[in-house]
């Protein structure tokens, strides 16, 4: 099983996102550590692109801050190579940066050089929001060559043949887009999430739900509805932006990220409990959950099952099958 697959194996996974270089690379290193301490099972690292068409205002602003701070693909890889965390890392970016990296480094445009470099610095997989399955052949091939996973987004509008086509190419986990539209913190969980999860129920691949998940309560609901994990970006990026605005020290912002991560991880764990009927639905609010020690302990277990097994991850890239 790949490192990413292992991260989902025992319990619902918490998958935070942040834009690397927001507001600078050193801060990102600290924030990634904080997310790991808070219970992250996989971390999505955003490499900022100037035209982030799938992102809402929060992450658009983070992209601007990161690019203004001088972030480049080369600097991104350098930053990732400095990370000393034990959770699998997923690079989230747009296709043009992947494609041009080849031209810049080897004179040959295409994803191969980018994937090779990513593998060197410890990236385990990719999410590329503007690359639908139809255009993903070269990147899929490069990922297979380097034993990396390629995660695809499945939207509420994805069904039938399209879903089959994605399942033929996806590995690691499926990113279940909770609602139509762009990324951004929301006040509630989309009612379309359950229907999307139902469509995927037959496939033996971890299903991680993202777009709008903001609280531990959301995480609990989504996992109770059948998700294997929750992806959370904008609310964390907001914490970074607010800290940045207020001039707070990196450590202070990191503490807030860690606390928020605990809340979200605990929500996911509570969702699994209510799903299996051990605990009545609605019994565990996010605040209660965030204070529980068990969140940390379970997070530690996941780390053991996560990156430490990455070296033996010969099964990265395995496509899901119908159960």
């Amino acid at each position: 099983m790949s490192a990413i697959g292992a991260a989902f194996a025992d319990e619902p996974a918490f998958v935070p996102y942040l834009a690397v270089g927001d507001p600078d690379a050193d801060a990102s290193v600290e924030y990634v550590r904080a997310l790991e301490r808070g219970g992250a099972d996989v971390i999505e690292l955003g490499l900022p692109f100037s035209e982030p068409i799938a992102e809402g205002p929060t992450i658009q602003d983070a992209v601007v801050r990161s690019l203004d701070g001088g972030m480049t693909p080369a600097a991104f890889f350098e930053t990732v190579s400095r990370l000393d965390v034990d959770v699998p890392l997923v690079c989230m970016t747009y296709y043009n940066l992947i494609y041009q990296f080849g031209r810049r480094t080897s004179g040959d445009p295409g994803p191969e050089a980018f994937v090779e470099r990513a593998a060197e610095v410890g990236i385990d997989g990719f999410v590329v929001p503007d690359l639908p399955a139809e255009e993903a052949g070269p990147l899929r091939t490069a990922c297979d060559e380097h034993d990396l996973d390629l995660i695809f987004i499945v939207a509420p509008t994805t069904r039938g043949e399209r879903l089959e086509r994605i399942m033929a190419r996806v590995s690691g986990y499926v990113y279940v887009q909770a609602r139509l539209g762009v990324t951004g913190a929301r006040a509630d969980v989309s009612t379309r999430t359950a229907a999307s999860l139902d469509r995927l129920a037959d496939w033996d691949v971890p299903k991680a739900v993202g777009f709008g998940i903001t609280t531990g309560d959301h995480a609990r609901e989504v996992v109770a509805a059948g998700a294997d994990g929750v992806i959370v970006g904008s609310v964390l990026v907001d914490l970074i932006a607010e800290g940045n605005e207020a001039g707070d020290p990196v450590e202070t912002v990191a503490d807030r990220l860690e606390a928020k991560a605990r809340e979200l991880k605990q929500g996911a764990l509570d969702g699994a409990t209510s799903k299996t009927g051990v605990e009545a639905d609605g019994g565990a609010g996010p605040e209660t959950g965030a204070e529980r020690e068990s969140g940390t302990e379970l997070g530690t277990e996941t780390e053991v099952g996560g990156r430490t097994q990455a070296g033996t991850g010969t099964d990265a890239g395995t496509r899901p099958e119908r159960k």
Binding site: Y95, D130, E134, E135, I153, T157, T158, R159, R162, G181
Partner: peptide, 21 residues
């Protein structure tokens, strides 16, 4: 056949949510 390609150009590089549309 990939529809909508002109030499090396064209294609459909959009978020999955838009692909059905």
């Amino acid at each position: 056949r990939r529809p909508g390609t002109y030499g090396d150009y064209g294609g459909q590089y959009v978020p999955e949510a838009l692909m059905p549309a």
